[in-house]
Amino acid sequence: MKKLFVYSIDLGIVWCFVSGNISIINFLFGAIISYLLLRPLRALYDNITDDSLEVLILKIPSLMRYFMKLAIEILKASIAVAKIIIQPTINIKPGIISVPIRAKTDLGITTLSNTITLTPGTLTVDVSDDRSILYVHCIDIDDADEIRESIREELEDYVLEAFE
């Protein structure tokens, strides 16, 4: 019941942004419509366990750090791939490697794989059935262990801190 209200308020804010008109009336309209839509479908949301409000507020600094890191990594990634593209002869050693991960929850694994896709030279292909290994396509492999190490050290710490 409480969960439904929280989702309705979230979706009301999203509706304000999508419709491009931020006002109290528009927000209430979006929240009420999303409550009416979510109510018959609530069986789908019952198995999701939520954190309490205090935990969410305490996570805000680590979320900010994560998004700062993400913005820097996207810039670096685009410049790195652009450098490969504008070379006169493309000289790359691509391949798919397996990367063991520590994240356990659905949200953590999804965020980690999206972050890996947005960072330089790596693209997530799949997650193994027992959810312990990500298969990552790299555009230029010099040393596979070095790439695994950089994913563990640089990205996963931020994701674990912010989302688990």
Binding site: A77, P94, G121
Partner: peptide
């Protein structure tokens, strides 16, 4: 540059690198 990468890189996986990262930026 992303579209140039789509034309120049060798296979589908490398082309996805170009279109996702550079396309988003």
């Amino acid at each position: 540059l992303g579209m140039l990468g789509l034309l120049r890189l060798p296979d589908v996986y490398n082309r996805l690198h170009a279109t996702t990262k550079i396309g988003i930026l």
